[in-house]
């Protein structure tokens, strides 16, 4: 069953410089228990897309289209109704583990709040459950550490606290926005393993929002590539990596320096990502695309199915196995 169904989602912000369209008609499906990577560079709209799903857009932002979670439309729900859905059905882990916790409150108080509020646990019960959760996240000496303040934790440890909090009410869907970007590689591989274990044990679907295609390769089944607020390509991770259809996907995969390759020159994508204050008329990638023709600069390609389970928005897709 489709857990999350996003259709034609548009997010725009009213700013002093006029309207900025961050997300321009995105479709997204997340099946129950699935792991989906939303891949994009800065300005691709990946974070605003997820904040819109959570109902957490900044005050000057508006979302249009449809976001259905288990067949319930989320757009337009008021704060009280959203609060019943958030954390119990859908939860989010934010990028910066330094600022996502309240510095004035002990970790114990922040972790138990959701359990008491949403699951109706008694405080003592909630505290025991929180310690269990931290144990599962491999926080050493959780019983003692839970009484500490956030600043007494390292970055990797804080991110584990945030994941534990997000999972505490056993949500059906966990959105993790760049959960390892601020962390060192050795800590990153541990966080990714913890997320995979949580998915296996709780059956929680995970949406991993990231710019790092390296962690997508090891940790996700499906992927969606965003550029300029639009979906460029979507499909199973193995097949997209093996033979991308969109020139942007190909460029992105080739641009990553790899430990297992010796080519001294990286195939880079020329130019810079588009300025979303002045979005281009046609395909957002046309200005940087090696295959672009006139049509690409005027006419926006639709996201079309090209093989079972795979879609691409390109007038001249790369030849992959059909």
């Amino acid at each position: 069953m489709t857990l999350l169904r996003v259709r034609n989602l548009r997010v725009s912000f009213a700013t002093g410089d006029g309207t900025v369209n961050a997300v321009n008609g995105v479709d997204l499906d997340v099946e129950a228990g699935q792991s989906l990577a939303v891949v994009g560079e800065s300005g691709s709209g990946k974070s605003q897309l997820m904040l819109a799903v959570m109902g957490l857009l900044a005050r000057n932002g508006t979302a249009a289209g449809s976001v259905e979670l288990e067949s319930v439309e989320l757009l337009g729900l008021d704060e009280r109704e959203l609060n019943r859905i958030r954390s119990r059905r859908i939860a989010m882990v934010f990028q910066d583990p330094m600022t996502a916790l309240n510095p004035y409150l002990r970790v114990a108080d922040q972790m138990t709040e959701g359990l008491v509020l949403h699951l109706g646990m008694a405080r003592r019960e909630a505290l025991a459950e929180s310690v269990r959760l931290l144990d599962a996240m491999e926080v050493p000496d959780a019983r003692r550490q839970i009484a500490m303040y956030p600043h007494e934790f390292s970055g990797g440890m804080r991110q584990r606290v945030l994941i534990a909090m997000a999972l505490s009410c056993r949500p059906r869907l966990l959105i993790a926005d760049e959960p390892t970007t601020a962390l060192d590689v050795t800590v990153q591989s541990r966080i990714m393993r913890i997320l995979a274990e949580a998915r296996a044990e709780l059956g929680t679907a995970v949406v991993l929002v990231t710019h790092d295609v390296g962690i997508v390769a090891g940790g996700c089944e499906h992927m969606v590539v965003l550029y300029g607020g639009q979906v460029m390509e979507s499909g199973p991770v193995d097949r997209v990596f093996a033979a991308p259809y969109h020139p942007y996907t190909e460029g992105l995969l080739n641009a990553v320096p790899r430990l297992d390759r010796d080519d001294s020159r990286l195939p880079s994508i020329p130019g810079d990502p588009p300025d979303m204050n002045r979005p281009p008329a046609g395909c957002p990638f046309a200005a940087r695309c090696p295959r672009a023709v006139d049509r690409c600069r005027h006419e926006l390609p639709g996201l079309l199915s090209r093989a079972p389970d795979r879609r691409v928005a390109c007038h001249l897709p790369l030849d992959g196995p059909a």
Binding site: V185, T186, Q188, S189, D212, V213, G214, I215, V216, A217, G218, V237, D238, F241, A242, L253, V256, R258, L259, D260
Partner: peptide, 15 residues
């Protein structure tokens, strides 16, 4: 440990 933790953008190798 650093080499082992660095992800490789290739699902076939990474898995």
């Amino acid at each position: 440990a650093l080499v082992a933790a660095a992800p490789i953008p290739d699902p076939a190798i990474e898995r």
